[in-house]
Write a protein that binds this DNA or RNA. Sequence first.
RNA 1: GGCGACGUGGCCGAGUGGCUAGGCAGAGGCCUGCAAAGCCUCGUACAGCGGUUCGAGUCCGCUCGUCGCCUCCA
Length: 424
Amino acid sequence: MRLSSTLQRTKVELPDPPGPIRMYFCGPTVYARAHIGNARPFILGMWLRSWLRERGYDVTLVHNITDVNDKIYEAAPGASAELAERATRWYLEDTGDLGLGQPDELPKATEHIPGIVRFIQELIDRDFAYAVDGDVYFRVARDPEYGRLSGQRPDQVEDQEPNPRKEDPRDFALWKANKPDEDTAWDAPWGRGRPGWHIECSAMAEELLGPCFEIHGGGLDLVFPHHENELAQSRALGHEFAQIWTHNGMLRFTGEKMAKSAGNIVSLRDAIDRWGRETVLLFFMTAHWSKPVDFSDETMAQAQAQWVSFQGAFRVSRSEPPSDEWKRFVDALDDDFNTPNALAVLHDWRSRGYWYLLDQGLELFGLSLPPMAGTGLDVERIRRERDEARKRRDWARADELREVIRRHGLDVVDESDGSRLVPL
RNA sequence: GGCGACGUGGCCGAGUGGCUAGGCAGAGGCCUGCAAAGCCUCGUACAGCGGUUCGAGUCCGCUCGUCGCCUCCA
């Protein structure tokens, strides 16, 4: 199994034989309902965990919730904690409705303040950070390797708004002093305030997973500065942060990145309600995770047509696959988690009637074929009765009995040597 | 200004130098009491221009275009 990694700029092999895999996927800032673009790293993380477990790895997935942040203060002046709590519930509901389960840990920044404070203190002790007027900043100039992940050179980074408290414009905040209109704050040795954005991930990831864990994921838009800064913070403590860095491509809508700030939003909630969770999942399977993907009515309709086709899988006569057939699926996914290629294998299995393999494959992605509900003796009896009617060429009676079967939630498919019950 | 991603047939989308990707949509045909599924055939794709090579969608260079980051955007 290998994965494309931004840090090495190539595909990196995972440990073989399989061992523990610790994964951290950057989660949402909770100030509004998540849009479908936000769902991509969540889905990728859950799928990867599912696949790695299938391949024998012992996986732990941590997915953080950023519940203290400028955007939350702006969105709900004086009531940021309430908004964060509500938006967290939305996120858990909406991602839960994807039917992929939950990450192993969903740490909130506000519940890990002591660890964050300790982390910052150690950076100060090591001279990698300095406190000014209640703020604390990371000293970028102290890190000769700053920019290794993103390829950015500190001296080429565009000037930000001048901040006289910073020694250097490239320095970034680890701690921000409490302001009058901010309704949440915690005590720290250098003053009352709250953590900066980047430090929470470093602190929580290392607290829950330990240093130098295996896989770090997130959106491509987080490479710089967010992930670069996470990396710098950990390196300042004397070790690497993560080994493999996966960055999923952006979801585009109406020609540009779907983003709350751009206003071209379709919420995950609305997408699930309109298209169904299976179509949303299949949509993300159609493109490789590292590439941009266009969301539109047309691409969603195509994904939905694929789902309809899979749902009819039992209508194809079952046949026995070759013994090494599963390997085709494994090969596709082990090579950089190539879901489009895996999807092609699933389509092939569907048309060949490899029911069991198809079901196994889909299940790893949170999809399941319709169950053969309602199969009872009575339905089976009606099926045989209809077969008899067809032998008599009593088509009217046969069609009548098919309607009866359909009322039981099943359909009947005629084949050369008889008939078969299938999900409707 | 710097860093990065991407440009494949009507649409979506794989492809890491030579062998049919796959899906969706469309046309014709076979099969079929009906229905469903399936099968066959068709439309001769790789942004452009050079180069390397026996051979390039795949490597190199240049050009054009789209998008992203450098603002606490997944």
